[in-house]
Design a protein around this nucleic acid. Sequence first.
DNA 1: GATGAATGAGACTTCATTCAT
DNA 2: TATGAATGAAGTCTCATTCAT
Lengths: 220, 220, 220, 220
Amino acid sequence: MSGTIAARGRIEKRQAIVDAAFAVFARAGYAQAGVDVIAAEAGVAKATVYSHFGDKENLLREAIAASADQALARNLATIETLTDHSDDIRASLERVGIRLLECYCDDRSWALRRLLSAEINQFPDLLDIIHTRAAERVTEALADRLARLTVAGHLHTPAPRLAAEQFFALLTGPMDTRARLGTRHVPNSERRAVARAAVHTFLQAFTPKPVGTPSRRSDT
Amino acid sequence: MSGTIAARGRIEKRQAIVDAAFAVFARAGYAQAGVDVIAAEAGVAKATVYSHFGDKENLLREAIAASADQALARNLATIETLTDHSDDIRASLERVGIRLLECYCDDRSWALRRLLSAEINQFPDLLDIIHTRAAERVTEALADRLARLTVAGHLHTPAPRLAAEQFFALLTGPMDTRARLGTRHVPNSERRAVARAAVHTFLQAFTPKPVGTPSRRSDT
Amino acid sequence: MSGTIAARGRIEKRQAIVDAAFAVFARAGYAQAGVDVIAAEAGVAKATVYSHFGDKENLLREAIAASADQALARNLATIETLTDHSDDIRASLERVGIRLLECYCDDRSWALRRLLSAEINQFPDLLDIIHTRAAERVTEALADRLARLTVAGHLHTPAPRLAAEQFFALLTGPMDTRARLGTRHVPNSERRAVARAAVHTFLQAFTPKPVGTPSRRSDT
Amino acid sequence: MSGTIAARGRIEKRQAIVDAAFAVFARAGYAQAGVDVIAAEAGVAKATVYSHFGDKENLLREAIAASADQALARNLATIETLTDHSDDIRASLERVGIRLLECYCDDRSWALRRLLSAEINQFPDLLDIIHTRAAERVTEALADRLARLTVAGHLHTPAPRLAAEQFFALLTGPMDTRARLGTRHVPNSERRAVARAAVHTFLQAFTPKPVGTPSRRSDT
DNA sequence: GATGAATGAGACTTCATTCAT
DNA sequence: TATGAATGAAGTCTCATTCAT
């Protein structure tokens, strides 16, 4: 094929380093993370890390980008299941909400967000990586689906982007305190309850008014 | 007159150190923050920092606790203005929402949250400091007020604690992305818009049903 | 009488500081000994130590000198009991030997010697303090007594100074290894055995030859 | 061939560090010795010292152990020359005594003993290193030889271990004061005199009694 | 290409000493 | 006079990074 055994080994080593780097960064923070430790955890020599990534800063970027890509993929896959095939909009939203919360509460997701918060002053471009690669696209994807559901008459979201933001807020906001920024495990049942409450509030606000009934003014 | 500039009292020096410490920790992160820098910024010798706080770790705790106390005070003061004296519940909530967002978007608040996220793995007890001292009490205070407004007939929040959580979520959730975790300044007008949208959604969900009108079942 | 209450307090404090200093120096070594610790152990403030002794180095000197004086006094008192009143020279020497070993094995004596060894490079004059104040005078005092015993016909020490040195050597030499430089406690019985063996060897060498027998030349 | 001055092998560097460490520790004491200074004296970077020895404490141990091994070797080699090949036991003992005193009075030996005294409180295990590695074995080796000389009829030491202790005591005891713990140089002639006096006294005590023979052989 | 070894810069922390009360 | 507070200098140790094999 395309790769010799040696080349395959190199790529695999690179992947092992990125994985180890994310794990160590997440555990210890950027500054406290030792390149020795990362190298050891990846099973390579310290100099090998440098030959692959140049310096520690770049290693952080790559690790974060890889982690963001993973999170993006899972979130998009979940959102794509939100179609207008079903008539029970509440059940659909709850199912999607629960799965989005699963993504949000994944250990790697918490670690990614914490790392981002931690290093945003030192490396402001990290946020761009994340936002353009993941957060923004997820919100937009959800907004797209809400728009289609509105068109289909299942919802009433005249400002789909704002509605998407609020949907995420209602889902994840209560988790931040409950999960103690990812330090505490939140049981499935509690996650489901939060998701149901979020969907309930969301639907109160964004359910289409029955036809023929004079509706109140909508907001901006 | 007891104090010249050179001869500040011990307490003043302690306060200066705490302030400088929070500023430097917020700017550089715990590990990267140099005690030299903190001391210089506080206008004292490095050893003085140690004589006051023992070690860097304890200094972080004190700085965080002080900052959390400040944030708590501002939030509580705001929430206390949410009374049932006015008939215009929407206006009241919007006013409170806007002021809560001001607290939330204050530079020190962002810094506090980022610092917390950053160091939670190394210092898990920080979260306890914050949660018991600030976050929990703010949420409960808001829940209290929502309950009173419900009793007064202005709202319908059968689960005030959950409603309070959602109110905060609707307010602050959209800010996280818009403010880029505090890196980007969000103009007043945008903050007001977020607050209004949050209050609108909140009221859709928690406005008392008109008397004599059959209401839909609420979920669990 | 001569001192006011305040003055008496000062002198007592000075003594307390010297005692504490010796204890701490002995325990931790000069460099590792903290003036804080000495002050605390003496029950005074750190600055008081400085007002009494000027600096740490001088404090060491005073502490060592005081300790050397104590050791000197005990040794001299013991040696003075070595008279020619008794006919049993062996018993006399053994009694003195045992009591000299008690002095030598006292915790403070070990500490003094260790401290001296430790700091002799940094403070060469310490040795002068000790030697002129104590060691030299003890050896000379013993040499005096050996000379008188020789004159009285109980011993034969044509070179009393050398004999005194060897007496001390036979006594203390075996103790160094047995007591592990003062770290290990040597039981009384063992000390007595060492003293008896020392006296035995000493007497083999320095017992006067029987009268009427042609004696061999003694060496220098 | 392989090693230029700049590129000494790892083992050579290690040896250079140990040597420098012993020199600096001996000169300044453990606490006052700077790792910087040791590194500079060894011609390596400070961090290299740490990569080899972990920490300063361990460096002390290794330096002391190395020095003790050297001293042991010299002492054992000397003692091994004490055979029963010669008939002149006095000359043999004097020769060995002089050479043992040379070992004892070597600068490194003094330094080793001073260092040991100095740090025994902080590092009690140092004494075990020395005792098991050197002191004990030297005394035992001498005791062995004294026993063989007794068997051969040249000496009479029914308790060889004690006799060995006393031989060392008579040799080294007088040196401690004369050499001022190694601070003062003792001329060869004086060392020889001490050795002769020691041997004289030793022989007075441990010469075999003539069996049925009228007079003993005269000494030198 | 991968690695063991080395290093320079810098971090936290301590401590003898001084000063104003 | 005695002291609490402050400090500058110094020390141990770590770590990201490079170089020769």
